[in-house]
Amino acid sequence: MNPAPSVIIFSTLSGAGFGLLFFLGLGLPTVTGFIAFGFYLIAYLLAVGGLLASVFHLKNKKNAWKSYSQWRTSWLSREGWFAVSALLLMAIYAGLQVFLDTTVATIGFLGAALSLCTVFSTGMIYAQLKTIPRWNQPATPAFFVTASLAGGALLSNNPTLANILLILLGIVVGFHWWKGDSRFAEAGSTIGTATQLSGKVSLWEKPHTGENYLTHEMVYQVARKHAVKLRIIAIVLMTVVPVLLVLIFGAHHLPVLLAVVSHLIGLFAQRWLFFAEAEHVVGLYYGAHTAKQAT
């Protein structure tokens, strides 16, 4: 799949933003006044900034408001509902904390739950697609949620929780890669099932001499020789460096800031791979994924 920068930025930043809102909603930490303002500013910039980035990949933005209509069937619609209700509810909770020094725990808990549901829905948008076997596994929403929680724990200055969640994130992402590598063969789609022709089938001629929307969007071929390197870079920056920084320096502002930056850069690499390595079954009609098919 073509890794669109807007979608990678969206899922990474808004994930961290909703993760921070989750911990603030739970009262970890309970903040009021000026400090609360600082925390919520960061959370809203990340969450809303990410959501705005996702609007950039729409080809017909004027109809974006209609995406709230199909919550009964569509995960993308549900994501929109969860995001807006989480942001509105947490705005009330934040307003009370910043301006009135009042903490209403019930609103916070509800806002935290909705924040987590938003990130889970983001994961399910990808995990529901049977056409992309690498994404079609429970580890997909699992790493979206874990990444959001780990980023939120770092941003909300919960060092112990952050380290546990960062290590958990490394394990979940590692499992997603390991499982993902065999998912295409497990799904069982081959050039034979795609064409229903008998014997050994191969592409003789593409429908067009050039590229088209489908090949550009879904038959994107990453230089696989870099995939292993990128996986190592991702896991080092996303998990190892932040864990070490927090272990050595504790919950001080500068090391935590460095840890957050490193974590987010690592997460960008992980998200880029998530798209670039994903094989869509339509590629079979274009002679792709020959090495990934079940024999």
């Binding site: 948008i125 056409t131 079954v281 009609y285």
Partner: peptide
């Protein structure tokens, strides 16, 4: 709205 998710969901292009 041109999000393209349905094109991703279709196995046949």
């Amino acid at each position: 709205m041109g999000c393209g998710l349905c094109a991703w969901a279709c196995p046949y292009g």
